[in-house]
Design a binder for these strands. Structure first.
Length: 431
DNA sequence: TCTGGGGTCCTAGGACCC
DNA sequence: TCTGGGGTCCTAGGACCC
C-alpha cells in the first residue's frame, strides 16, 4: 500500500506562506526568464491561465485580471520542500521523494486507520509550514497518484467527487461499486503515464475514462502502444509494476541550460555562458560523487521567432572521466566554438554531462606528462566557498566577471527574498 | 527464382514526468 | 519585448562485427 503526498500549487503556496496578502488572489509563479506560468493559484486556474502559458500572452489576454506574477525563487522552494518531506516521512516507514513537491510513502506495517493518519499528517504540514497538501492512497503507485488527483479535485471543485474524498482519498477503502463509479468519472488523461499523444490514441479506440483503461487487455496495451502503457494498465488493475525507490538513484546525466535574457550573436558571451553552465553542472556532479565521460554543448535560436533558425549540439569526449571543473569547462568551450555560427540570434545554450560513473572507480593509467595533479581538494574547496559565500563567489575567469550585468543573464524581475536561506532576508515579526 | 543470423553500439527522436 | 529547465525510458535505424 502506498500514499502519495503532494503540495497543492506548490510554488505559489511557498510564496503565500511568507506573504499572506497573496491568499485568495490570482497568483502565478513564472519560469526562468519570466517566460511561462509554471505554478498557478486556484484563482488563477479559474481565470483560465494554463500550465506553461507564456506570461506575455496571458497579460495580453487578461489585461484587467490583476494577477500577481512572481519570478521563480527556487532556493526558497527547495528549502520548503525539505521541510515538507521531513514531515511527510512521518506517514510511514519508507519514503521516495519523487519531485520537489511530491513523495510516495510506503505504508506496509502501518496499523490503524490510514485515512485518519494521513489527515493528521496533512494537518501537521499545513500548521508547521503553511503548505496545503492532498494525500492519495492506493495499492500501487499509479493508483496512489490517481487517488491524489481525486483528493485534490474534490477539494478544489466541490461536486466533482464526493466531498468525503477531499484532501485525503484512499481508493483501497472504497466499496467495489463506488470505486468503479470514481474511475468512470475520471478522464483517462489524468492517469500517471498517459500523456496527450497516448490519450488521443486511446480515445480513437473508444477508451476515454480510467474505467475503460482498467478494462484494457495489458497484452493489447503493449502491442498497440508500448511496454510503458502495459505497466500503467497493470498498475491500475492493482499489480505493482513500478519499483519503489527509497534511496535516490544517482543521475545518469546532468544538465545546465538557460534561455538568455536577450538574443546573443557573438561568441564571447556564449563562452561566458557555457563556462558558467559547466561550473554549475560540475557542482551537481561532485555533489553526487560521480565523474563524467562526455560533455555535450548546444546552442540554438528561438523557435518562436521568425528569421533564420539554427540548432546544433556536439559531444566532446573527455580524455578520462572526470569531475574537475577545469576539464569540464575546457570541453564546453571547445564545444561552443565548434557549434557556434556567426549571424544567428541565439536564444538558448546549455551544457550536459553524459556517461556518468561513480567517482570511486578508476581506470589504471600510466603517469603521462600531462596528467594533472589531483585537483579533488581544489574542487572541494571551491564548492565549500561557493556554498558558504553564495553562488559565483569563486569561478573560472572565462565565466565573465560583470555579475548580473552579463549580456546573457536571464530576466528575473519579480523575485521574492530568500526568506529561509539568507540571514539578511529573514522575515521579521514585530511584537 | 534466388542473397543468413545474431549481435553491439551509437544517435536521434518521441513520449512522458514534474 | 516577450514562450523554462531537468530528467527518464523506449524505439527505430544505421554502421559495424563475425
Amino acid at each position: 500500500m502506498y500514499a502519495l503526498v503532494d503540495g497543492n500549487n506548490f510554488y505559489v503556496s511557498c510564496e503565500r506562506a511568507f506573504r499572506p496578502s497573496l491568499k485568495n488572489r490570482p497568483v502565478v509563479v513564472l519560469s526562468n526568464n519570466d517566460g511561462c506560468a509554471i505554478s498557478r493559484s486556484n484563482e488563477a486556474k479559474a481565470l483560465g491561465v494554463a500550465m506553461g502559458a507564456p506570461w506575455h500572452l496571458v497579460k495580453q489576454k487578461l489585461p484587467d485580471a490583476d494577477i500577481v506574477a512572481l519570478s521563480a525563487n527556487f532556493t526558497l522552494y527547495g528549502d520548503m520542500s525539505n521541510r515538507l518531506m521531513s514531515i511527510a516521512a512521518g506517514l510511514g516507514p519508507e519514503q521516495e521523494i519523487y519531485s520537489i513537491d511530491e513523495c510516495f510513502v510506503g505504508l506496509d506495517g502501518v496499523r490503524g486507520d490510514l485515512v485518519d493518519r494521513a489527515q493528521r499528517v496533512r494537518e501537521r504540514i499545513l500548521q508547521w509550514i503553511g503548505i496545503p497538501c492532498g494525500i492519495g492512497i492506493g495499492t500501487t503507485k499509479t493508483l496512489a497518484k490517481l487517488a491524489n488527483h481525486i483528493a485534490k479535485s474534490a477539494d478544489r471543485r466541490p461536486g466533482s467527487y464526493p466531498i468525503e474524498l477531499a484532501r485525503v482519498c484512499n481508493l483501497a477503502a472504497l466499496a467495489p461499486g463506488q470505486l468503479t463509479e470514481m474511475l468512470a468519472a475520471t478522464d483517462v488523461r489524468e492517469v500517471w503515464g498517459v500523456g496527450p499523444k497516448n490519450a488521443e490514441k486511446l480515445r480513437a479506440l473508444g477508451i476515454t475514462t480510467v474505467a475503460d483503461l482498467v478494462r484494457m487487455d495489458p497484452v493489447m496495451a503493449r502491442m498497440k502502444f508500448s511496454v510503458m502503457l502495459e505497466r500503467t494498465v497493470r498498475e491500475l488493475q492493482g499489480m505493482p509494476c513500478i519499483a519503489f525507490e527509497d534511496a535516490p538513484a544517482a543521475k545518469k546525466e546532468i544538465a545546465c541550460t538557460r534561455s538568455f535574457g536577450r538574443a546573443i550573436t557573438d561568441l564571447p558571451p556564449l563562452i561566458e555562458a557555457v563556462t558558467e553552465f559547466a561550473l554549475r553542472a560540475g557542482e551537481k556532479l561532485r555533489r553526487q560523487g560521480s565523474v563524467a565521460g562526455n560533455v555535450l554543448t548546444f546552442v540554438h535560436t528561438s523557435p518562436h521567432k521568425v528569421g533564420p533558425q539554427y540548432s546544433k549540439a556536439v559531444t566532446m569526449p573527455l580524455r578520462r572521466p572526470t569531475a574537475d571543473s577545469g576539464d569540464l569547462v575546457n570541453a564546453a568551450i571547445r564545444g561552443i566554438r565548434t557549434v557556434y555560427r556567426p549571424g544567428f540570434k541565439m536564444a538558448k545554450a546549455g551544457v550536459m554531462l553524459l556517461d556518468l560513473q561513480p567517482g570511486d572507480v578508476h581506470q589504471a593509467e600510466l603517469p603521462l606528462g600531462d596528467s594533472a595533479a589531483d585537483r579533488g581538494p581544489l574542487m572541494a574547496t571551491m564548492d565549500k566557498l561557493n556554498q558558504r559565500y553564495g553562488k559565483g563567489a569563486l569561478i573560472l575567469a572565462s565565466a565573465g566577471t560583470a555579475g548580473e550585468q552579463r549580456a546573457w543573464s536571464m530576466r528575473q524581475e519579480m523575485r521574492t527574498p530568500h526568506y529561509t536561506t539568507q540571514w539578511q532576508d529573514m522575515p521579521v515579526a514585530f511584537a
